[in-house]
Nucleic acid binder design. Structure first.
Lengths: 265, 265
DNA sequence: CGATAGCTTGAGCCCTATCAACAGCTGTGG
DNA sequence: CCACAGCTGTTGATAGGGCTCAAGCTATCG
C-alpha cells in the first residue's frame, strides 16, 4: 500500500472541496511533518487535552471518541487517510474528544505555528481547511440524525455506506470492497448500540445478502440494498469530484433513497 | 426586549472566542443586513437548498433539522440570538439541514459576497468565524454522545443545561430562568425520543424538583441536580468569558459531574 | 498450549415507541 | 356568544427493540 508523498492524499482531500493555487500546494508541501507509527487502540490526544499540533492520517484509521459516564464510549467520527483529525485544536484551546487509532496507523504531526504561518495571507488554503472542518461538522449532523432517528440496522448500514464512499474518494476501496480493523465493539460505540446487538445486526446484514463481512474486510454485495437499508445519501460529504480527480468512480446510486428506511421484516 | 444595534450580540459572540481588532468590528458593523420577522415554525432555508446569504439570529430561536425517512425529524442544533445559523453555506454548496424558526424570530440576512469581502485580509475575523463553526461542531459531537449513550431523562436534562448556559452567556437568562417557545415535540425531535416520552420525561424532571416547567418558561430549581442528571459539562461550549464581557455570571457548577449519569431508580 | 481478544448465542427484562383517547387552550367564523 | 377545528399536553395500555448478564466459541500469539 503506497503512500506517495505524505501530503499527497491531504492535498487531494483539500482540493476536493476548494481549488488551490500552486503556491498553496507548495505551502502544504513545505509543512514540517513528524511521521509516527501508532499501535492499535492507542490514544493520540486525550479528551480535554490541549495540543500544539495537528494530526494528519497517512495510513490506517483514527476515531474521535467521547467518554460518557464512567464506562460508556461514543465514537463521533472516523478519520481516513488524507483527513486532518483534530482541526478543531487549531483554534479551540482543548480538544473536546479523544483521538485514537483503530488498528495501527501512520500519522503525521504538524505544529500549529507552522499551520498558522501557512494560512497567513493564503485565503484559498484557509478556505480549504475551513471547508474540511465544515464537512466534518456536516458528518456529525448526519450521524446525529442517524443515531437519533434510525434503528440499529440502519445505523450500521449507514456507517458502512459512509466509509465505503469516503474510502472510494481517496482510492482505497476498489469496487465496494475494503478492509478496516474495527471491532464490533467499535461499531457499537459509533452507532450508539451495545456490542452484543452490533453483532446481531452485522449478522442480519450478512443474512440479507447485503454485505460479506469477515475479519479480513467488508465487501458490499448489494449497494442499492445497503443504501436503502441505511437511508444513505452522500450529499453531506460534499464530494464534488475535483477537476483534477482521477475518475472518482462513485458507487452507482448514492442519491436520495428515502424509501423503506425502516422496512418491516 | 432590546436588541441594541443588530450586530452587537453577534460581536459579543465572536469576541467570546477570539479577540477582534477595532477594524474587524467595523467590518462587521458595515455588513449590509436585511432584517426579517419570521413567523413561528417557518423554514428559512430548506434542507438541500443552495443559499447566497448567511442568517444571523437577532431575536428568538432557530433550529437546524434534518428529515429522516418520510415522517421522522431530527433537530441537530438550536441557534440563539447572536448565532450565525448557516455558516456552513458560506463554503459548502448546499445546506445539509433545514433552518427553521422555533416560535417567531427576528433574523438578519447578509450576503455571502459581503461576508467574503469582509473576511478578505482580515485574519482575526476569519478565525473568529471559523471558531464559531468549530464550537458548533463540538456541540454536535456532544449531542452525538448524549443521544448515543444517555437515556431519555439525561438527554432532556442535558439539553436544558446547554440552552441555559448559552442563554446566560448572551445575557438572556437571569438566574437560570428563561423562556423558549419550543414544544415537547421539538424537544423530542432534538433528543431522539418520541413526543409522548418527552412529555413523561419532562414530568419526571418536574417531579424530581429539578425544574419548573410550564408553557411560559423554564426555571431551573436545582442546577447541580440537573447537571448531574444530564451528565453536563460546559467545556465544549468554549465559553471563556471575554475580557470585555459584563460578568457572564456562569452557573454555579458546570464542571465535570460524571456521577450517577445512569443512576438506577 | 494456555491466554487474551473478539465473536456468537440465549434468556429475561426494561426503556421507549406506538396507538388511542381526552383535556386545555387559542383562534375562527357563523 | 358558542360551535368548531387545530395544536399542545397528558394519560393508559400494549408491544417491541435493544440492553444486560452469562456462557460458550474461535482465532491469533507468545
Amino acid at each position: 500500500m503506497e503512500i506517495g508523498r505524505p501530503y499527497s492524499r491531504l492535498l487531494h482531500r483539500l482540493e476536493s472541496c476548494r481549488p488551490l493555487l500552486p503556491e498553496d500546494r507548495q505551502r502544504i508541501a513545505d509543512l514540517p511533518l513528524t511521521v509516527a507509527n501508532v499501535g492499535a487502540g492507542q490514544d493520540i490526544v486525550r479528551q480535554g487535552d490541549a495540543s500544539d499540533r495537528c494530526t494528519v492520517v497517512l495510513n490506517g484509521f483514527l476515531c474521535a471518541h467521547k467518554r460518557v459516564g464512567r464506562v460508556q464510549r461514543q465514537i463521533t467520527a472516523f478519520f481516513l487517510p488524507g483527513d486532518i483529525a483534530d482541526l478543531s485544536s487549531l483554534y479551540l484551546p482543548n480538544l473536546d474528544y479523544g483521538l485514537a487509532t483503530v488498528g495501527s496507523a501512520v500519522v503525521a504531526f504538524t505544529p500549529h505555528t507552522a499551520l498558522h504561518a501557512a494560512l497567513e495571507r493564503a485565503p484559498m488554503l484557509t478556505e480549504a481547511l475551513w471547508c474540511q472542518s465544515l464537512v466534518q461538522a456536516a458528518t456529525s449532523r448526519e450521524w446525529l440524525a442517524t443515531i437519533g432517528r434510525r434503528d440499529a440496522l440502519a445505523r450500521v448500514a449507514h456507517l458502512v455506506c459512509e466509509i465505503a464512499v469516503r474510502l472510494q474518494a481517496v482510492g482505497l476501496a476498489r469496487d465496494l470492497r475494503f478492509s478496516i480493523p474495527w471491532t464490533q465493539t467499535d461499531i457499537a460505540d459509533a452507532c450508539g448500540i451495545s456490542n452484543v446487538h452490533a453483532n446481531r445486526v452485522v449478522q442480519k446484514l450478512r443474512r440479507q445478502g447485503l454485505v460479506e463481512w469477515n475479519t479480513h474486510g467488508i465487501s458490499i454485495l448489494d449497494w442499492n440494498g445497503l443504501v436503502a437499508a441505511g437511508g444513505f445519501s452522500d450529499d453531506y460529504l460534499a464530494l464534488s469530484s475535483p477537476s483534477s480527480g482521477p475518475s472518482t468512480a462513485k458507487p452507482i446510486a448514492a442519491r436520495q433513497h428515502d424509501v423503506s428506511q425502516a422496512a418491516p421484516a
